[in-house]
Nucleic acid binder design. Sequence first.
DNA 1: GTCTATAGTCGGATAGAC
DNA 2: GTCTATCCGACTATAGAC
Lengths: 222, 222
Amino acid sequence: MVSRPASLNTRERLIQAGIRLFGEQGFEATTTRGLAEAAGANIGSIAYHFANKRGLYLAAARYIAEQLRTRLALDETAAQAPVADRDAALAALRALARRMVRTFAEDEECRQWLLLVMREQVRPGEAFEILQAEAFGLVQATLGGLIARLTDRAIDDRRVILETHTLVGQIVFFLIGREPLLRRLEIEAFDETILAEIEAVIDAHLRLYAAPNADPTPTRPT
Amino acid sequence: MVSRPASLNTRERLIQAGIRLFGEQGFEATTTRGLAEAAGANIGSIAYHFANKRGLYLAAARYIAEQLRTRLALDETAAQAPVADRDAALAALRALARRMVRTFAEDEECRQWLLLVMREQVRPGEAFEILQAEAFGLVQATLGGLIARLTDRAIDDRRVILETHTLVGQIVFFLIGREPLLRRLEIEAFDETILAEIEAVIDAHLRLYAAPNADPTPTRPT
DNA sequence: GTCTATAGTCGGATAGAC
DNA sequence: GTCTATCCGACTATAGAC
């Protein structure tokens, strides 16, 4: 039994309200009254749980980062990758790519985060630093480590960084550009069939790293 | 010499203000007074040029779509592609991909459009229909036609649609996910060197379509 | 404590002068 | 084409009646 279920619920509800309202209206335009009302909480609860409006905003960013880490199982993948051999690296890469596809294409909650995250992309503030340090950076490092291993390049090689970015873009766009894709496919939502096809397409692109010799511009052995 | 330079300027400035304010605050929260002030115009000019606030919003969406079509030279590419042979299709695909990279990575104005476009992605309204019909759909159709040609598939093949989406995601993410990438690269902005490297990475992925037999799951000849 | 009347504010739209 | 003044509807806040 939890010690303060009502309190934790209020905190959770405030964060959810924050993600929604900060994303839709921006930080300044969002009022503490609006946040409290949307959360079904008392105005004073913001000060109690987060000190002030800014604290709630940063907590919302931390929540998003934490959820991403959990859903993508980033910590486990990062921990196992460095010591893995080549086949294990490829398997880890495919598994992580698959988790990303499932998370971004299937999970409805992710869509709630989009506007807040995009605001921080367009005008990065302190919340961006949190997202970068606690989520984006881990995705870059984990995927980058695996791709570096597979292409026999250094982990800081710019080619590795750009390939990592490209891979993330492929997958994330199933979240960001979902509506135009659904229109083109003439469907209302992703079903299991299409999700499997998406995975197959991503997997085909991962094959670019499977055969390092196929790369026409290999890194020179320093 | 233009016949009504002053008028065009007011109209233009209102659209620019609309893209910014509607994106930042959303349609409802944005006031006509705020729009007029941001544009350095008077309130009545909104009614004169766009009938009402909603008209300005839709005009902003149309402006974005038109700018995209122009920058990507979509109309020309779409017109030439269907009759092209295989090599010409590949060349057209590479050229269009290159234009997209340059537009999204280099052009600062594109960043202004992001929030408005993302709002329409998250909650599609009439403006989304405009963007889809006058820009996104053309990108899908043009790229899809070229990829279909290169992979010997039908233009409505779901694999073609998904590959097209994946390609767009790769490139667009250099606009959307620019900040995390700049952090990782430890640079402040894209320079010519990195742009060339980005193009090379995208080009390597295009090579997946260059050899149709390399595709492990070919379409069955219906 | 609840309800309601009224005053005040805000924002979109309109009309008409220049 | 641009600008000012104004109207009207929606919402908010307050206050007084009960």
